[in-house]
Structures are given as structure tokens and as C-alpha cells.
Design a protein around this nucleic acid. Sequence first.
DNA 1: CTGAAAGCGCTTACAG
DNA 2: CTGAAAGCGCTTACAG
Lengths: 325, 325
Amino acid sequence: MSGKRSISPATRERVERVIEELGYHPNSGAQALAGSRTNIIGLVVPFRPNIDMTVIAEFMAEIASRARARDYDILLVTADEGPAGLRRLVGRSLCDALILMEVGSEDDRIPVAKSLGVPVVLIGVPQDSEGLHCVDFDFQGAGETCVDELADLGHTEIALLAIDPESKKGQANFSVRFRRGVERAAQRRDVDIRALVMEPNHSDASRVIEQMLALDPPVTGLILQHSDAPDPVTAVLLEHGRTPGADIAVIGLCPDALAERLRVPMTTVQQQASEVCRRAMETLFRMLNHEIPTTGEVDLVPVSLVRRSSMNRAPAVNGYIHAIS
Amino acid sequence: MSGKRSISPATRERVERVIEELGYHPNSGAQALAGSRTNIIGLVVPFRPNIDMTVIAEFMAEIASRARARDYDILLVTADEGPAGLRRLVGRSLCDALILMEVGSEDDRIPVAKSLGVPVVLIGVPQDSEGLHCVDFDFQGAGETCVDELADLGHTEIALLAIDPESKKGQANFSVRFRRGVERAAQRRDVDIRALVMEPNHSDASRVIEQMLALDPPVTGLILQHSDAPDPVTAVLLEHGRTPGADIAVIGLCPDALAERLRVPMTTVQQQASEVCRRAMETLFRMLNHEIPTTGEVDLVPVSLVRRSSMNRAPAVNGYIHAIS
DNA sequence: CTGAAAGCGCTTACAG
DNA sequence: CTGAAAGCGCTTACAG
């Protein structure tokens, strides 16, 4: 018996010693059958191309270790099994609960996720999240923060080096949400945004930045959406004699490690994968323990701004100094 | 009954129809208990920092999909559970077989892997691989191929932009094996190699390449070991007026997609993750079907050279044209 | 080709 | 606090 009923210290110790000696491990299949719980969590991972596997892996690591901390294991399922995969997992009683990663706006797994009868947490925000527990970064807030930070420094002509929205068709909607945040804040702050689609490599950065430098009125602030953009963009700006933090203000979305090792360390909005995972796993375990119902709502992790050296005030224009809010 | 004994077409069809109608799924715990097989493969994944998760994810995707193709599922285990994790997996009968990724030279999981009593395949080549099935890229061959290709074009002064060997201490040994290949071939071809340790970002590439350009006798060929090096290195070379394929020959190790979208598409040795996974899974399934014993040997996937535009002949030196072998 | 018994190794209730 | 029965949903032999 494992922990369910009271036991005298004497026999407990005796049993524990024998377990140790014999190297006893309970048979998981028998436990699952008799106890009707598997102690396994199904993790549905997107292995499509065009997804940043570095961040997916960060999530997997965090989720797996949090699961083990509560004596759960992780069953890895690829997203391309689709809705039928989810049915199989719970139909065959392969797991007690599910986590779906990279859930898109119109995800065909949403309806079956709702009717599965086991706890489910989504990472991402679908259009119709009604009744589902969803956890994600607040990408819209991140976009707003970037614009606000630039506007606070007096910038009114801003370029957004954007992820191609076409490349993410039908996938996760974080780039759309970020951009929506940028646009809302731009309107609110009465600031100009020029969006330039860019691939995150040196030659495309070169192309796009030359385009940007030709713009009139001149751009003084830059928002980088793609997490691989900072290295090539910083390099190209320096090649053109524009030092981030002195000649042009740069802010964006990327891992801290990258931001810090740039020639000019970049101000970023932080995406804490661990915090998203912590919340997702916490609500999953609460559902498994029947502490909360299996229906839930959207839980957005607020962004936090990390100021480094890539931001500067907007230069005076025509002798007029921008009012700083 | 699923497939084990003969059955009349009539009843078969009747049963299949009912299965369909009722949405029947066999209970995996009961199957495991009664059949003493789980149809689950344990996959032990390294989530340490300093590992390229892009390639790890490529392996996971390939392994998971090949497993599903034979009706196996994947249990995800993090490498930091160590040897005890392996014992737990088979002790609790959570899986029928194991795959260990990123196995290092002196891996403390090796001895227990040998005594586990279930089929195991390692991805990587430990020092003591005796009796274990190991599959990996032939990194040594890759290193040799790079040097041979340069030497064939007449280059005798070659720089290796290398991964810091310290950063991989106690981890997988592929960078050591690549470098060993480079050194062996250099000796064999009587060619000079200067190794320069580099981090794969634009500013470190800049530092290292300036260092390289100052070398005497001048370097005419470049080997890139780090798969993230090609973009920044190509950029820095062009900044210094050296066009790969015209002024300097460049070859290296990186994904095809990256090599092809560079300003000068780069000649590379190809690392086919899918081929490594295919072989690993093939031998695993053969073991599971008792077609081969659970003891095995090292299986290295040969590299294949993909020529693109980054290579040129060595320039004539002092009026003397190098003899081409 | 088909039926029906035994048993896989546990957990859960039910007695003591 | 402890013992012993029943049963979880299958697979595997063993009969017919």
C-alpha cells in the first residue's frame, strides 16, 4: 500500500527495507488497471517545420521535470496525430491528462479536447477557448510594451521588423497577437509604425534595413519580432554606422542569453517559458486532484521588460524636442 | 483478439463494425499486464543547456513518428534522471525498450544500460560500447571529408573555426570526433590546420576572422564546425571583401536549409538525422521481434558531401601552382 | 475456427 | 491497525 491508509512504523520500516533489498518496483500496468489512473500525462508536441524548436524544447524540459516532481511521467505525442490521437490516448487509458502545445486559432483539436473527459491544459490561445484552461505569454502585451517603451523615449517613427504572417498560417497565433499589440499601442500613443517583413538571416536583414534607412520621415526606433533577428540586425546596423542605443533605439523579443551577448546588449520583453509551464502544470495537477473543475479560462503570463543598452531617446527634430510623457 | 489467430471473415467484419460503432479502444494497462508488453518505447532526452535543441527535436520527431508507424508510443524521460531513471522505467515495466540520446564518452548510464534486460539503442558513441547497439553520424569521417575536399582543391593552409571543447565537457563527444577526423586527414594530406575557437555569433565571428586574416602564411580554406556559424561567418567574410567560393574556400557542418539560404550557398557535409533514426529504430524493432540479439555494435552513418558555391581552388603561390591530387 | 478458464499484479472496499 | 477477497480488462494457453 502506498500512502493511502495508516500503518504502524514497525511494519512500515520492515516493508521499506525489503523493497530496498529486492529493488522492488510496482508494475505500472497493474497499478493503472486496478487504480484506474496511469500517472502519465500526455504531451502533444508540434514537430512541424517553421517552429522554433528551441522554445518548444524549453517547454518540454520544464513540463517533464515538473511532472516527475509529482511522480508523473510524460507520454510524447506528435501533433500530427490530430484529434484522433487525443481520442486514442484517453480511449486506451494511456494517460490521465493532456497538455497541448502551440494551439492555433482554429485548431481542430479544440472540440475534441472539450469532450475528452480528462483534464486538459492548452498552451496557446485558440479563438474559441470557452471552457478550456489555456496558458500562454501575453504576446499582445509584449507588443504594446515595445511601443510604449519607444514612445516614452520620444520615438514617433518606428519600424517593426516583422515575421511573415503567411509563414504561420493555421499555426500558433502569437505573431498575430504581438502585432495586434503593436498596432493598438501605436494608435493609443499616436505613433507611426512601418512593418517590414524579414527573414532572420544576415542578408535579408541587410535588405530590409537598407529599405528602412531610406524611409522618410526617418525611423528612429526599431521593434524586432523574430527571436533570431537580433544578431544579424545588430550587425547590419553597425555596418551602416548606426549604433543601437545611440543612433537608433532597438527593442524586441528574444531569449535573454542572446540579448546579452550582442555587441550592444538589447532591451527585450522577457518570455518566461518556465512561468508558463509552472502555471500550466499547477492547474493540471489541481484538476487531477479535483481541486478545480476541468473547465477553465485563459491565463496570460504578463511580460516583463528588461532594459539593456540598445535604447536611446529620440533625437530632436527641426529644433523641436519631443515632449516626453 | 488482435491478429494472433485465424478468424473467419464474417465474424472479423462483424467485430470490426462493432469496434467502429462503439469507438472501442483496448485498455493499455490491461494489455500490458496480461501481455507483458507495453508497446511503449522509453526515449531518454538530454535537456541540458549548451545542446542544440533543434537537432534533438529533429530526432524526437523522427523517432516518435517511426514508433507510431509500428504502433508504439514514446515515453519521454529526461536524461537527468540518470541511471536510476532507466532502472525505474524497466523495473516498473513502463516500456519495452529504450533509446538514449546524446550519449557521452564516459556515460554512467552505460553499465546499467547493459544489464537492463530490455532492448536498448544508444545514439552516440561511448568509450565502452562493448555489447551495446550504438548509432551515430560518422563525425570523424565528416572531419576528414572537409579536409580532403579542401586538399583536393589545392588548399594547404586551412583554419578550423572550432567549437570550444571545454563547453562540451562530459557531454556528447561529436565535436572531439569531428576534430580528430580533421587532424587525421590533415596529417595524411600534409596540410596545415590552425584551430580557432569561436562562439557562433556575429561579433565573435568578427573577432576570430580578423585573427585568421592576420595569419601567415595566409589561410585559403575554412572549416566551420558549429552549425550556427555559417550565417555570421559568411557575413563577416563579405565585410572583409572575401567572397566564399572566390577568395576563400568555406566548408562545414550545418543543416541544408541554412546552407542554401546563405548569400553564398555553402558546401557542407550532410547530417541526416532521419537516417540515424531509421537505423536506430530498425535495430530496436528487430530486437523487440527477437530477430537479433540485444547485444550489438557501433553503426556509423557515413556523411555525404553536398557541393554548393562556397569552394574554390587554392590560388597560385609565388608563381607555383599547387599540384592537384 | 471458436469458447471459456486462468491469471497478469496491483487497488479498493469490506471485515476483523 | 491488518488481512484477505474481489475485480480492474485484457492475453494466453487449453479445450472443443
